[in-house]
Amino acid sequence: MSSVLFVKSGRSPLLRDGWGRLYSRAMDALTIDNLHKSYDGKEVVKGISFSIGQGEIFGLLGPNGAGKSTTINMIVGVAKLGAGQISAFGYDNQRDYRKTRQMLGVVHQEIVIDNFFTIDQAMKLHSGYYGVKDDPAWRAMLIQRLGLEPYLDKVMLKLSGGLKRRFMIAKALIHRPKLLILDEPTAGVDVELRHGLWDFVREINRQGTTILLTTHYLEEAEQMCDRIAIMNHGELIALEETQELVRRLSSRQLRLWLEQPLAELPAGLDFYAPKLEEEGRLLLLNLPAGVRAGDLLAQICGLEIKISDIETEQSGLEEVFIQLTGMQGMSA
């Protein structure tokens, strides 16, 4: 099966925003068209295209080295475009770079800080770089929401990793961007803080900010994102609404505890990739989407296998991800 089949080109013209209201895709927050990039003769982004609607939370996922950060760097202007076109809110990010950069806020994967300044000073400066006059009320709100108040006068060198991350998010929002780009914002951040950050991201999304994020935590992507694109080896191998992607590609696992241990796998179940565990007392069967558990059970009963207990397990994005990127690896 070719991985290309997983890329859905068509999208519904209407989406729901955070309040459940429908809105049109008349002007996308971000449009990427046939984007390429090579480093030292090696192509790391191979002609990807996608759009992000205004108000969406869009996840860009992929294993390390898939080309996610390179793509983000080209969007925000840290990397030069190899070939292709990027536009934000209708403006070309090369020709009208001042306009697009005003509308984008980015939190890079690497923690970057300027040790010369305190949090407060750095935020004021950052607002100025964006050509926006300092708004003390807005700055205070961001500082308060990200829990930075106690550290305002500290030089950044002395802050912990989690605080630096929160500071970078506050700084990325100081000029009120319409599209916030988060490249692995929760890498190396503890669980409690991660939840806090995602709550905050949801909140600003509800208030109208479009979000593009990359994360290694697939469970979070599944919970957060309206749509997900998966990149592997510089190509886009999936692009769908999250629920749809998980539903279509995930499978359930049926775990049957047997009254009598089996010495070998029963015949006729190959389709379900059977496995025996627990010294033959646990039979594992994969239940692909679209197959009814009842039909499978009936078939097993016909084999005269006595079942003492049944468990099912639903796979999530994690499995879909492994399935997709693994496939890509094999076909490459």
Binding site: R98, Q102, M103, G128, Y129, Y130, G131, V132, K133, D135, L173, H175, R176, P177, K178, L179, I204, Q207, G208, T209, T210
Partner: peptide, 13 residues
Amino acid sequence: MGSGLDRFYPWLP
């Protein structure tokens, strides 16, 4: 959030 209505001062950067 994301109002994008803040005035842009081209020489402020």
